[in-house]
Deep mutational scan, measured.
Amino acid sequence: MPVRRGHVAPQNTFLDTIIRKFEGQSRKFIIANARVENCAVIYCNDGFCELCGYSRAEVMQRPCTCDFLHGPRTQRRAAAQIAQALLGAEERKVEIAFYRKDGSCFLCLVDVVPVKNEDGAVIMFILNFEVVMEKDMVGSPAHDTNHRGPPTSWLAPGRAKTFRLKLPALLALTARESSVRSGGAGGAGAPGAVVVDVDLTPAAPSSESLALDEVTAMDNHVAGLGPAEERRALVGPGSPPRSAPGQLPSPRAHSLNPDASGSSCSLARTRSRESCASVRRASSADDIEAMRAGVLPPPPRHASTGAMHPLRSGLLNSTSDSDLVRYRTISKIPQITLNFVDLKGDPFLASPTSDREIIAPKIKERTHNVTEKVTQVLSLGADVLPEYKLQAPRIHRWTILHYSPFKAVWDWLILLLVIYTAVFTPYSAAFLLKETEEGPPATECGYACQPLAVVDLIVDIMFIVDILINFRTTYVNANEEVVSHPGRIAVHYFKGWFLIDMVAAIPFDLLI
């Protein structure tokens, strides 16, 4: 008679799926529990143990900040960024110097990925580790590398530091407007667009060049630039800015003055950032001319202004700041037409079709709590990747769950009947059967004279019903998954307890 339990259901295979997918890609990662103190490590794979030199037993239950890997060259700011990422709910990448158990130093890129439950609360953290440099290539500990984003994938490793954006290309926007319009339909740009040429040739750093990471940081200074100062900065030398009595002219307006920039070969870094931020506020060169004239017309309804409409929906549905990093990277690809469009465009503009998908598509409701890094690593669709929660398995109709209350009560009843059979069957065979043979035949009273025979008949009927119930009862397979398919249940029961239950259900007393 089957006594099969499996009270692990309803099970959740999400954690096993993450481990299996990460292991298949030869990654070095740990999984931490966000619900406990210090976000203790609950799993670390073999790749991480080989990377740091510690065994799994030495890593388990330690804080996922990996303070046991810190050393003299470990930056405090990087460690603080990892700790801050564990307090938030967004994906974050941090470069930090770690030390192995043998004392060797290596520069590592740590990717902190939160995993949320159905309520939107962070319950786990996945920390992925990628070695960037070994100890002989690690720089000085005073050099802070965590304020910069990861290198873009479309640049060669040897040319990542030679990417320079020439400031004269930004200063000569109005001069290039006529050349853009003359391109017409034969050019790649839309009317009114501004073409910015980027020099990728390796050259020595000069005062006129600005690194790509500095251009990325310009967006942080746009908020500090007032509207009046932006307007004066875009007017140009024809209309000098008016300053109040006793007030000095704005240095932001002076930063885009061609006369002032041409007199000296070098520009201050602050002026460069502010000038680029001011130019980015204009949607095209037409807006710059309109600002000089004193009238700013409404933005025209053409394809170039609607190019950012799908980007707005993608940004609203993005799951991490990696989408913004990807957008900034692609927006700086050289030799393309940049349409400086305000994100607050007309909502009635139709979304044009684009061959290049900048932001990841909208994630469906079932995966809105899973970050983009987890979705990318697992390579699963929205119909396959579940949320991290207890999910009731989908069972067929008329199927009994093996952990249901009805099955528990039924098993206790069958257990009592088995005990009765084990006690009274030998007793009936030894004593009652002998008395029946010696006594007179009682054929007239039937079952009324033999109450134990009636009980034995009921017990046999219950055993037959138990066999039928076992054909529709779920079970737990070797992978700790609840199986509810009727065919698989029948095959599993035939290979197991079916023969024993059938022999126990045969009414031998009635056959004798």
Rank of each mutant, 00 (worst) to 15 (best):
P2W: 06
V3N: 14
G6M: 15
H7W: 11
P10S: 14
Q11Y: 12
Q11T: 13
N12S: 07
F14Y: 07
I18Y: 07
I19K: 03
E23T: 07
G24T: 15
G24I: 06
Q25L: 14
Q25Y: 08
R27F: 09
R27Y: 09
R27G: 13
N33V: 05
V36Y: 15
E37H: 14
E37Q: 07
N38H: 15
V41D: 01
V41G: 01
C44Y: 01
C44W: 01
N45F: 01
D46Q: 09
G47Y: 06
F48C: 01
F48A: 01
L51M: 14
C52D: 01
C52F: 13
S55N: 06
R56M: 03
A57Y: 07
Q61C: 14
P63T: 13
C64N: 01
T65P: 01
T65E: 07
T65F: 05
C66Q: 01
F68H: 01
F68C: 01
L69A: 01
L69C: 01
H70C: 14
G71V: 01
G71P: 01
R73H: 05
Q75A: 14
A80L: 12
A80P: 01
Q81N: 14
A83Y: 06
Q84N: 06
Q84R: 15
Q84K: 12
L86D: 01
L86S: 01
L87T: 08
L87H: 15
A89F: 14
E90H: 14
E90I: 08
V94S: 04
E95D: 14
E95G: 03
I96W: 01
Y99T: 02
D102W: 01
S104E: 14
S104N: 13
L107A: 14
C108V: 04
D111G: 08
P114I: 01
P114F: 01
E118I: 06
E118L: 13
D119N: 05
G120H: 13
A121H: 10
A121V: 09
I123H: 09
L127W: 01
L127Q: 01
N128Q: 15
E130K: 05
E134Q: 07
K135L: 12
D136Y: 05
G139R: 14
H143L: 06
N146V: 12
R148N: 14
G149D: 10
P151F: 15
T152L: 06
L155T: 14
L155S: 06
A156R: 13
A156Y: 06
P157S: 06
R159E: 06
A160T: 05
T162L: 15
T162E: 08
F163N: 14
F163T: 15
F163H: 13
R164A: 14
L165W: 11
L165Q: 13
K166L: 06
K166R: 12
L167N: 15
P168I: 01
A169E: 09
L171F: 15
L173V: 08
R181P: 13
R181F: 06
R181V: 09
S182A: 06
G183V: 06
G184Q: 15
A185L: 08
A185P: 13
G186Y: 11
A188M: 07
A190I: 06
G192V: 03
A193Q: 06
V194W: 01
D197Y: 01
D197M: 01
V198D: 03
L200H: 11
P202D: 14
A203L: 06
A204R: 15
P205N: 14
S206G: 12
S207A: 15
E208A: 10
S209L: 14
L212D: 14
L212G: 07
D213E: 06
E214S: 06
V215T: 09
A217L: 14
M218D: 03
M218R: 13
M218V: 07
D219L: 04
N220S: 05
V222P: 10
G224M: 05
L225I: 03
G226C: 13
A228L: 14
A228N: 15
A228P: 14
G236I: 08
P237F: 07
P240L: 13
P240I: 08
R242T: 15
S243A: 10
A244D: 12
P245C: 07
P245D: 14
G246F: 07
Q247N: 03
Q247D: 15
P249G: 05
P251E: 10
R252S: 14
A253C: 14
H254S: 13
L256K: 14
D259H: 04
A260Q: 11
G262D: 10
S263M: 04
S266Y: 07
L267G: 11
L267N: 05
A268N: 14
R269S: 11
S272F: 07
R273S: 12
S278I: 14
V279R: 07
R280M: 14
R280N: 05
R281N: 07
A282G: 10
S283C: 07
S284I: 12
S284P: 09
A285V: 11
A285H: 10
I288N: 14
I288T: 12
I288S: 11
R292G: 14
G294A: 10
V295Y: 15
P297T: 09
P299Y: 05
R301G: 14
A303C: 06
S304K: 12
S304E: 09
T305P: 12
G306W: 03
A307C: 14
A307W: 14
M308F: 07
M308P: 06
R312I: 07
R312Q: 07
S313G: 12
G314S: 09
S318Y: 10
S320L: 07
D321Q: 11
D323Y: 05
L324N: 14
T329G: 06
T329V: 07
I330R: 12
I330H: 08
Q335L: 04
Q335C: 04
Q335D: 11
N339W: 01
F340L: 15
L343P: 12
K344L: 09
K344A: 04
K344D: 13
F348T: 15
F348R: 14
L349Y: 07
A350K: 11
P352A: 12
S354H: 08
S354R: 05
D355W: 07
E357K: 09
I359S: 11
I359R: 15
I359Q: 05
K362N: 07
E365N: 15
E365I: 04
E365A: 12
R366K: 07
T367N: 07
H368Y: 14
H368F: 11
N369Y: 05
N369M: 04
N369G: 06
T371Q: 07
T371F: 14
T375F: 14
Q376W: 01
V377N: 07
L378A: 05
S379H: 11
S379T: 07
L380S: 04
G381I: 03
V384M: 11
P386G: 13
